[in-house]
Every structure is written in C-alpha cells, then in structure tokens.
Amino acid sequence: MIQFHNVYKSYPSGHDALDGVSFRLSKGEMAFLTGHSGAGKSTFLKLISLIERPSKGQILFENVNLKSVSKRKIAYHRRKIGMIFQNNLLLDNRSVFDNVALPLEVSGYRTIEVKKRAQAALDKVGLLHYRRKLPSELSSGEQQRVGIARAISTKPNVILADEPTGNLDPELSSSIMHLFEQFNQVGVTVLIASHDLNLINTMPYRKVVLDQGRIASNQAPLTNE
C-alpha cells in the first residue's frame, strides 16, 4: 500500500527531517509511527499526502510513484486518504454535519449521497445527535471524533492520523484508538503518528520508531488477534 525507498527530506533551513528511510505498510495493515517530537513523524505523513515532496528517494502509494503525481493531481491523490490532524482543523463557521460533508462535496458526490454518507460517518463516531452544533460547542474529544468522521466520510482505503490523541486524556485517547482499530478491522490501512507510548504499547500493532530522521526500530506486533 505505502512504500518508502531510501527517502530523504531536508528543509530549505538545512534541517534534515528524514535521513534515508525505507518502510513498507501492507494493504489492510495498522501501524504506529512513534518517536520524540522532531524525529520526523509529521514529515513522514506529509510526504504521503504530498504536503511535502522528498528531497531524494521514492514513495509508492497503491503502486503509484508519487513523483509522477503532478501539482494539479495532488487534490485527487488526497481524496484517496483520510487525514486526521492533531488540532483537528475543523471549520468553526460550519456545523458539525457540514464539516463532515465537506470532503464529499469537494469530491462532487450527489446531495443525497452526501447526506447519507456524512450521517453514516457521524453515526460511526457516535456524534450524529450533535450534527447541527458548531465544532466549538463540543469538547476536544468530541471535536477529534468529528475530525475522524470527516476523514472516513469518503470511505478512503488509507487513514493517516497525526497525533490524533495529542490533547486528550488517556480514557478518550483509548476510545479514539479503538475507533481506528475498527476501521482497520474492515480492511482500511491505518498509519498513526503518536508519541503516546503508554497507549501504543498496549496495542498489538507494528511500531516504527523514528529517531533523528532514521528508523531506529521497526518492531513487529507482539500479539495477533
């Protein structure tokens, strides 16, 4: 599904975010990307969603070399990925429902389909009853779940999450992680960047540890379901 071949990324400031990373995430796999802040986790995800381009090396997404994705095609590439952000990036001038419906509208779904899918996604994260509220009226945990609903509304094959539990207490965090597990169980490939080691260690998935832009360990899951 996602392959990194000897990928380097250095920023114009001279900072080397990734320093020769090779990595492979199979279809339907769930994995954690971890490491100290500044280890290159965010850069790693940004390269997959083409927010950044690698300085050297190749990235394959669904067997497509991302180098071949032109600037104009980036939007279509991003529609294949459900992205979740630490600060959830919800639009506060739109209702919860409209936020979740936004990717569907952008992709040009029919109105009936937009309504159906947005409601299904909200139902999935258990927030359908809040659909008319504004994001600012919800708690941070609920806001994060709206962000997740938005990411899954188009039923993408891949979910990328950047510190999805960054601001949440342990209990909320584990419920969020549980949601990701459910998506993974139905075949969605999930990659989560997180430094919440206490939580990650309790979960039976691969952990890729980044350290100063290199993969320090690529630990296979301890147990399998």
């Binding site: 969603s49 939007a75 279509y76 590439h77 991003r78 529609r79 990036l89 936004l102 952008v106 938005r150």
Partner: peptide
C-alpha cells in the same frame, strides 16, 4: 482545510 481534503485549485 479544503486543499488538505482534496479540493482542487479550481474548487
């Protein structure tokens, strides 16, 4: 946000 969730420049 629209660019991140796959909105084209034209959109």
């Amino acid at each position: 946000v629209i660019k991140l969730i796959g909105g084209t420049n034209a959109y």
